[in-house]
Write a protein that binds this DNA or RNA. Structure first.
Lengths: 234, 234
DNA sequence: ATTATCTATAGATCTATAGATAATGC
DNA sequence: ATTATCTATAGATCTATAGATAATGC
């Protein structure tokens, strides 16, 4: 079975406008176009007709791939949180200290949330995303937030983080990360690397309350990526 | 002329449902209901019918008060940024040091943006708010952001703030403040005072890179409110 | 006479379903 | 035969306008 769209044969009746899209992976094309439209004009304002047109299909043909417009958004929301959740789980299984781990978690999540045109992470702030239909997404997002909380509680108990209320701090740090998707633009201004690194270091300044300690933790985190351990290279 | 709605006499034909709203200030009632609906279900998903029903009017009657649905959103957006902009201008005219000023600016803006049901500050993240029609709002919001930048540049040049890139820092701090409207809820968890104070102190930790200095600046800011100057009370 | 509402409706959507059709697979 | 598309359309909206109506003001 070919699920990657590398094959050239396409079954079924040809599209109204075959010039747009390869037709090899219609589901993927639809998700990409919908992501662009949902973030640029909004979920409700993006019509199924406009999504279909963007991929060279007629409006009704979308419903062969998704039972409803909401299902398209559900798939997109899931795609944004799923990789972050997976990374957080893997990270929790390492011996990374709390400061190193939170830096790595933030940089990874920023890369996920600020991906795709318009930054798919910004989908979740649209009021339509609060509908019951998307509960599954919010559950996963709560799990991701729990990983943040876990690290913050650990860092505090080890005396590494200087915080009064771990839960409030979790909310603020998490919002700092998630909120980036609503303003950051790939094109204008700063490179993703610079931006994400700065935000993660700022988060360390918040929890550690010390710019030098934050800077050292950042360096240790970058070492950790390269060597899979915090031990400094000789 | 009575613009405050304190009068009991109401001109014109009675409403379909006079039980809802006083009828004394229809424009205000419409804005409040629309604010609730725009933040809870989204601008596009909130129909003019649903807004009208919420204030006991028929759908068409809204258009006596606002020429279009977009004009309602424009008025709401303006109401969120206008008081913040005014405060920032007044603050700039005082002798408050950069750290004290940014603390006060942030706490004030948080109170503004997190007001009204659903936090009216969250209106601006809806993709519909990007439309050309709302350029006036974005211009004012840019002015407010310029005040943040001003303080950050000043604090850095005075050696009080430890930052590499003032512009990137401005964006991140500003997003930290604005983004609060998308997650903070009055009812669940923390009081506005505690939350806003914590966020402002965290912003100081970011720019100053020192928890103790941040804490002192916060104390000085609270003094400044009480005495209109930073000089410690004897 | 003035005002704020009402009723009625135009005209433009919008999502989703039903059933036909144009490809390839076997 | 299977698949992915198409056309056609139902039925439910949605915003905004036109003109009537039910109050108060003078």
């Amino acid at each position: 079975m070919d699920t990657q769209g590398s094959s050239k044969v396409t079954l079924g009746r040809p599209r109204a406008n075959p010039l747009i899209g390869t037709g090899a992976n219609p589901r993927r094309e639809i998700l990409d176009a919908a992501g662009r439209l949902f973030t640029s004009v909004g979920f409700s304002a993006a019509s199924t007709r406009s999504i279909a047109e963007a991929v060279g299909l007629r409006q009704a043909s979308l419903f062969h791939h998704f039972p409803s417009k909401e299902d398209i958004l559900a798939a997109l929301l899931d795609e944004t949180v799923e990789p972050s959740l997976k990374f957080a789980a893997e990270l929790a299984a390492t011996d990374a200290p709390a400061d190193v781990a939170i830096y790595l978690l933030i940089v990874n999540d920023l890369a996920n949330y600020c991906s795709g045109p318009g930054n798919l992470g910004s989908l979740q702030v649209q009021p339509e995303a609060r509908r019951q239909r998307f509960k599954n997404f919010w559950d996963k997002r709560d799990q991701l937030k729990a990983h943040y909380r876990e690290l913050i509680v650990r860092g505090k108990s080890e005396g590494m983080f200087k915080l009064t209320d771990s839960d409030l701090a979790t909310n603020i740090i998490f919002a700092l990360v998630e909120g980036t998707a609503t303003w950051y633009e790939q094109d204008g201004g700063w490179s993703p690397t610079t931006t994400f690194d700065t935000i993660a270091e700022f988060a360390l300044r918040i929890v550690m309350g010390n710019a030098e300690a934050a800077s050292r933790a950042r360096t240790a985190a970058l070492q950790f990526i390269r060597h899979g351990t915090r031990e400094p290279v000789p």
